[in-house]
């Protein structure tokens, strides 16, 4: 969820401290600086190397092999990637993941925006209401998945009981291939709505009130003010929400694993679920690693494209 933040900092790291231009420093001072740097960096550099950098390299290496985690690896070059790209299962996993994002993003964004707009008004018990909407955010995905699996239980779940009482059709929810993904989307939206709302609310509160006053004096209607003022000025927050939601959306797994385990009949098998199954069910670690790099490439590409396209629609006040 942090990738979005990286872009601007790369160019901004400050120059050397003005008080200690390196040319004037003596070798002894320099050695001492190096020793201090080692002292301050070791606690993060050692674990980062051991548990992120080395696994990264070894993952890339494994992806070029056929390997069942037990017998020795055999070199296959880029075959894993070629096979995956031609594989029906890979395409299905990516399209299920996309379906998730397409359902989840508008639901949480529009829902979160409406709540944020309402909470931005001067109303009583504002922080209490905000806390209520935010509570699902701190609940773990596994709990969210279980609670919703129960609410959406086709036989004795609350939702179908209510629908039945109203004489409406009762879908099979997560047990029905058509309704399984909407069930996952609903549960996920419930959990994340508060997070999106808080981000957008912070964005709304950063908009200077004088702008609204000026627009009101000019006779702009509420509708007009929303489209011409609020939405454009909120675009940096919207951008952040979209970038984060897409990154998280492509990596969706926990709630799917608990609610449907990719079923019924593979209808909700997402990319990370496929990586997990390839490794731990089918013992195809090479393909699993290759798929994880494909996923990374897609996420990176989508994020970079958004950074590119940012200029066209994001207004910086």
């Amino acid at each position: 969820m942090t990738t979005a933040l990286t872009n601007r900092d790369v160019d901004h790291s400050p120059g050397r401290s003005p008080s200690t231009p390196p040319a004037r420093r003596r070798p002894r001072t320099r050695r001492r600086t190096l020793a201090w740097a080692a002292f301050f960096l070791a606690p993060s550099l050692v674990p980062l190397t051991a548990f992120t950098l080395i696994p990264m390299i070894s993952s890339a290496w494994v992806s070029l092999h056929e390997w069942n985690l037990i017998s020795p690896m055999s070199w296959v070059g880029i075959d894993n990637y070629v096979n995956l790209l031609g594989d029906q299962r890979t395409r299905a996993a990516f399209s299920h993941t996309l379906a998730y994002i397409v359902g989840y993003l508008p639901l949480t964004y529009i829902g979160g925006l409406l709540i944020a707009l309402a909470l931005n008004a001067a109303i009583p018990a504002r922080s209490l209401l905000r806390s209520a909407y935010f509570l699902p955010v701190v609940t773990s995905w596994v709990v969210v998945a279980l609670v919703w699996q129960w609410l959406l239980n086709p036989n004795s779940g609350l939702v179908n009981t209510v629908l039945g009482a109203l004489g409406l059709p009762e879908p099979g929810w997560w047990t029905d291939p058509t309704w399984a993904m909407p069930s996952i989307i609903l549960a996920s939206a419930w959990k994340d709505l508060g997070f999106i709302m808080v981000i957008l609310l912070a964005g709304l509160q950063a908009i200077p009130g004088e702008l609204y006053e000026a627009a009101r004096v000019d006779g702009a209607s509420a509708w007009h003010r929303f489209w011409r003022l609020t939405l454009p000025l909120l675009s940096p927050s919207t951008f952040f929400v979209v970038v984060i939601s897409l990154i998280n959306g492509f990596q969706v797994f926990d709630q799917v694993y608990v609610m449907t385990a990719g079923g019924p009949g593979g209808a909700t098998q997402v990319v990370v679920g496929e990586i997990y199954d390839l490794t731990f069910r089918y013992g195809r670690a090479g393909e699993a690693s290759a798929l994880s790099w494909l996923l990374f490439a897609v996420v990176l590409l989508v994020t970079l494209l958004q950074m590119r396209g940012q200029k066209r629609w994001v207004t910086h006040a």
Binding site: T2, T3, T6, D9, V10, S44, L48, F51, T52, L53, I54, P55, M56, S58, S59, V62, L69, Q251, F253, V272, I275, Y276, T279, A285, A288, S289, S292, W293, L295, F296, V299, L300
Partner: peptide, 21 residues
């Protein structure tokens, strides 16, 4: 820059090799 690069790599990429390690 190396630190930032690790930020971009999702856990899913690391799970298999980390498990093996």
């Amino acid at each position: 820059a190396v630190y930032l690069a690790t930020l971009m790599v999702p856990l899913q990429v690391l799970v298999v090799p980390l498990f093996i390690q």
